[in-house]
């Protein structure tokens, strides 16, 4: 797993291309070609995944989710940061300015 500093709201993130994603009953399930693991992103995690198909700041992701979901901003920010941090550690998302994880091998 990748060990790095925690993300902040100003970080720009993007979904890694080396994944196969499928919708299953409203939830997104993903296979990482890089590590061979399967992941369940759930429904909201799947929505986040769609939003970061192109580079977006974490704050932009949160703003969009606040428009769609009934949630407090502080709670949303913290939970989205935790979720993206976990995905980053699994090598599933890229952070702008960092080398792609595949290039580190």
């Amino acid at each position: 797993m990748i060990s790095v500093e925690k993300l902040s709201l100003s970080d720009r993130v993007k979904a890694c291309d080396q994944n196969i994603v499928s919708d299953m009953g409203g939830e997104k399930v993903m296979l990482s070609i890089q590590n061979g693991n399967y992941y369940n992103l759930g429904s909201i995690g799947g929505r986040i995944w769609e939003v970061i198909g192109n580079f977006a700041t974490v704050a932009e992701v949160v703003d969009l989710l606040l428009e769609e979901y009934d949630v407090d901003r502080t709670e949303c920010e913290q939970q989205v940061l935790d979720f993206l941090d976990h995905m980053r550690k699994e090598g599933l998302v890229l952070v702008d300015g960092e080398a792609a994880s595949a290039d580190q091998a």
């Binding site: 992941y39 769609e68 979720f83 699994e90």
Partner: peptide
């Protein structure tokens, strides 16, 4: 004016499947 109801929030979790 009709406004679209917001969806219920649930903490996003990354579940690593076995």
């Amino acid at each position: 004016m009709h406004t679209q109801a917001k969806k219920a929030w649930k903490q996003p979790q990354l579940e690593v499947l076995d």
